[in-house]
Amino acid sequence: RERTTFTRSQLEELEALFAKTQYPDVYAREEVALKINLPESRVQVWFKNRRAKCRQ
């Protein structure tokens, strides 16, 4: 699998949801995934990595 490159608009959507909740449920992830045209699994991994970045 190729590394996913997020567009600015995708990142804005993801960061907006992250500001609301660092642990979105599957419904919130699927909703944003549809909105930004990415698989839910990519959204899930983005949140995992974003939380790790936050802890550093």
Rank of each mutant, 00 (worst) to 15 (best):
R1C: 11
R1T: 15
R1M: 10
R1N: 05
R1A: 02
E2H: 06
E2R: 04
E2I: 07
R3T: 12
R3W: 06
R3K: 14
R3P: 10
R3F: 07
T4K: 14
T4N: 08
T4F: 09
T4E: 14
T4R: 07
T5P: 05
T5S: 08
T5W: 06
F6G: 04
F6L: 12
F6V: 09
F6S: 04
F6P: 04
F6N: 05
T7V: 04
T7D: 10
T7Q: 05
T7K: 06
T7F: 03
R8N: 14
R8S: 15
R8H: 14
R8Q: 11
R8L: 10
R8C: 13
S9N: 08
S9I: 10
S9D: 14
S9Y: 13
S9H: 13
Q10T: 04
Q10G: 03
L11H: 13
L11C: 02
E12Q: 11
E12P: 02
E13W: 06
E13F: 09
L14N: 01
L14D: 00
L14T: 00
E15T: 03
A16L: 10
A16W: 05
A16R: 13
A16M: 12
L17E: 04
L17D: 01
L17P: 00
L17I: 06
L17N: 03
L17S: 03
A19I: 10
K20M: 07
K20C: 11
T21Q: 11
Q22E: 14
Q22V: 07
Y23L: 04
Y23I: 05
Y23G: 02
Y23S: 08
P24C: 00
P24H: 00
P24W: 01
D25R: 02
D25K: 04
D25Q: 02
D25S: 12
V26E: 12
V26Y: 15
V26S: 13
V26P: 09
V26R: 15
V26K: 14
Y27W: 11
A28W: 02
A28Y: 04
A28P: 00
R29S: 09
R29T: 07
R29N: 02
R29P: 01
E31I: 07
E31Q: 11
E31N: 10
E31D: 10
E31L: 11
V32Y: 02
V32A: 10
V32T: 14
V32R: 00
V32N: 00
A33D: 00
A33N: 01
A33S: 10
L34K: 14
L34N: 09
L34Q: 15
K35N: 09
K35G: 03
K35F: 00
K35S: 05
I36Y: 05
I36C: 15
N37F: 03
N37H: 11
N37P: 00
N37T: 03
N37R: 13
L38I: 05
P39D: 10
P39H: 05
P39F: 03
P39V: 06
E40H: 06
E40D: 07
S41L: 07
S41G: 09
S41E: 13
S41A: 14
S41V: 09
R42V: 13
R42F: 04
R42C: 15
R42H: 15
V43F: 02
V43W: 02
V43K: 01
Q44D: 09
Q44H: 10
Q44C: 14
V45L: 10
W46R: 01
F47C: 04
K48V: 08
N49E: 12
N49G: 07
N49W: 05
R50A: 09
R50T: 04
R51M: 03
R51P: 03
R51E: 02
R51H: 03
A52E: 15
A52N: 15
K53E: 12
K53G: 14
K53C: 14
C54W: 12
C54L: 13
R55P: 06
R55L: 12
R55I: 14
